[in-house]
């Protein structure tokens, strides 16, 4: 059984809960008092992940850190349809990796802004917000051109991939960091499509899709 070292308000933990909900994977939650307790910097947690970051999973002794790495593992191991991380399609795998990296950029900007506003992290808030807008503009254009060619998802595949799951949470939570999305209509439509994926689940701050 998978144990997820988890903090409810973390978008990076949420992306794992989201994929596991969609794939119907059962797991146990080990709560980490990320805030205010800073338990991810505690001695026992640093043994699990010397980087002092959540999430971490333990799947029968296999300990993995890094949200994007864990998405790859979960999809490769537990998705019988093989569509979330299509191992036989090198071009698509390359694109997925590219967007997983992009998701890390969203974490470094939009998530950082949210940590600043909500949990008082000391950082350059203007730079974080400007960085997030730069990435959102790129993502919005990518999705907008995708819609012109009937591509609903971030990567060119008929169904969503882990790239969508990786990018979704901190886009969706961006307003908590003072980053509105009204200028990104294609992002808004894509968020709505993600919310309609079978097995979709919410976290605090993310609401389900309205009636179609």
């Amino acid at each position: 059984m998978i144990t997820l070292y988890d903090y409810e308000l973390s978008g990076n933990c949420y992306k794992l809960r989201l994929l596991m909900s969609i794939l119907g994977i059962e797991y146990k939650t080990a709560p980490v008092d990320f805030y205010p307790g800073r338990e991810h910097k505690s001695e026992w947690f640093l043994k699990l992940n010397p980087l002092g970051q959540i999430p971490v999973i333990d799947d029968d002794g296999l300990v993995l850190r890094d949200a994007q790495a864990i998405l790859i593992y979960l999809a490769a191991k537990y998705d019988p349809s093989g569509t979330w991380y299509p191992r036989g399609n090198p071009a698509l795998l390359g694109k997925i990796s590219q967007w997983l990296s992009f998701a890390d950029g969203i974490t470094a900007t939009a998530s950082a802004a949210r940590l600043h506003d909500g949990l008082f992290y000391a950082l350059d808030i203007d730079a974080a917000r400007a960085g997030a807008h730069r990435l959102f503009r790129i993502l919005d254009e990518h999705l907008w051109f995708g819609e012109r060619e009937d591509r609903d998802w971030i990567c060119s595949a008929p169904s969503p991939t882990i790239a969508d799951i990786a990018c979704f949470p901190y886009v969706m939570l961006s307003e908590e960091g003072g980053i509105p999305r009204q200028d990104y209509p294609a992002i808004r439509r894509w968020c709505d499509r993600v919310k309609r994926i079978k097995g979709f689940t919410v976290m605090s701050g993310v609401f389900p899709a309205g009636p179609a």
Partner: peptide, 14 residues
Amino acid sequence: DKVIKRFQQTIFGQ
């Protein structure tokens, strides 16, 4: 403690 805090933070986060 962390379980009790998590419950309340979940609600506040909503």
